[in-house]
Design a protein around this nucleic acid. Sequence first.
RNA 1: GCUCGUGUGGUGUAGUUCGGUCCAUCAUGAUGGACUCUCGAUCCGUCGACCCGGGUUCAAAUCCCGGCACGAGCACCA
Length: 471
Amino acid sequence: MPGDTSSIVLRFAPNPNGPMTIGHSRGLSINSEYSRMYGGKVVLRFDDTDPKVKPPIIDAYDWIEREYEWLAGKAPDIVIRASDNMSRYLKCAEEMIAGGFGYVCRCSVEDFKRMREEMKDCPCRDRLVSDTLSDWEAMNSGEITEGDAVVRVKTAMALPNPALRDWPALRILDAPHPAVDGAQYRVWPLLDFQSAIDDHDQGVTHIIRGKDLMDSTRKQTLLYEHFGWSYPQTLYWGRIKVHEFGKISKSEIKAAIEKGKFEDWDDIRLPTLPALMRRGFRGEVIRDFWIDLGITQKDISISMQTIEAFHAKRIDSSTERRSFVRDPVKLTLEGSGGPGPELSIPKHPDGMVQGSRDWTVGGSVVVQSADVNAGSIRLKEYADITVSGESAAVDSWSRTDERPVVQWLPLDMGRDAVLHRPEGRLISFESGLLEDFELKIGEIYQLERVGFARLEDLPDEGPAKLIWLHS
RNA sequence: GCUCGUGUGGUGUAGUUCGGUCCAUCAUGAUGGACUCUCGAUCCGUCGACCCGGGUUCAAAUCCCGGCACGAGCACCA
């Protein structure tokens, strides 16, 4: 990391207009990891100064703090809401106007766009400071209506980069803010202005952000020069795309939820952090995954499968096994001798999880219907059998030949369960019998020959609810 | 259109600052085999890349010039 790293201050600044998504998780992982490496601090700042186009959701402040902790493994060092700093932004704006490096512009959007293209000064640019100051007051008092004026930072209209030419800093918005008292403010700062002031006020030393914000850095640097501040060191990462999800838009997800296309923000088909949490992903594994990828400015495109493979590898050795027989068929066992009714099966085949699952085998067992077609099968860890109709003859207790090994359950050991599994735009429901041994809500199990799943609910009445994690 | 950024196997990366130690690293993937009473894991092998074209040089992934491709910004969004 460049610059003085003796006591770094980083920041992570989401908009609380929904929970975080997998996209945010990269930014947060990288910021929190750098903070850990250098013994620095992270400011969690809610950039919530657009009550109109991206209105904050009041619950999202808490969601995000929880998600932060889940992913980073610790709470943020400082939590700030931009909407609490409104008076500071307005004061800075006034100072900017009074200092002559900002002005109130009353041109229409189209007119200004044209002047920007033609590199021509806007007529509002060279008005007397006193005139533009009175316009500023009029903006705040309500004499100027929404859309009729904007405060711009005076840079230069001849700048080669069109994005930098007299960029907009504040605008009028007549909309209530859910976290701010009523109609207290009319003029709200845009991101580049708000964030620039906050970074300075909060003593941010390093900014690590997506390279789509490179022009923000340049805009804000120009503003810092006006104020005589020095800009933080800045690092960028490239665009990230997850194949399965494409572009993620919180407002589109919100609309889809309202239309009933998804259950809620934690619908298991969604790329949100609540959905990932619900499926049983572990925050520190997701974090390690992003850190493994590193930060480069290259645009990258990864598959959810890559994340899942990484996750499976990390949790495998600490995840207990359970049997889950889908589409079960009941078989009556006919045979004598054998190991007796008590059976002990390890919680994990390699013994990384100590202990065993103790089964009591009665006269009946269940196997998956697709497995009985093979005729001769081996009930794993138990017996070689040959199926005929609804009964099965035990050929041998020990493994004697190459017949397929199948999952099974003593009938009395199973309880009804439904596995919920995201299948693209749909959710599939697979019913079966789940091994009823030391089940705990919230726990992740590897369902043998099926995959990893989280046990979400274990009602007294009705089937247990399993949520698919990954294979 | 203007501005900025990025190009290394299918995917993600190391190496580029300061040219040689790079017939290019590691992981994942694909594939062949061994092993295994779930999936897998493990072990052995194989496949596969420096965007293109010039230039400088004894020597270029690395430096220079010119293309090309992709991405982002040019919002009264964040």
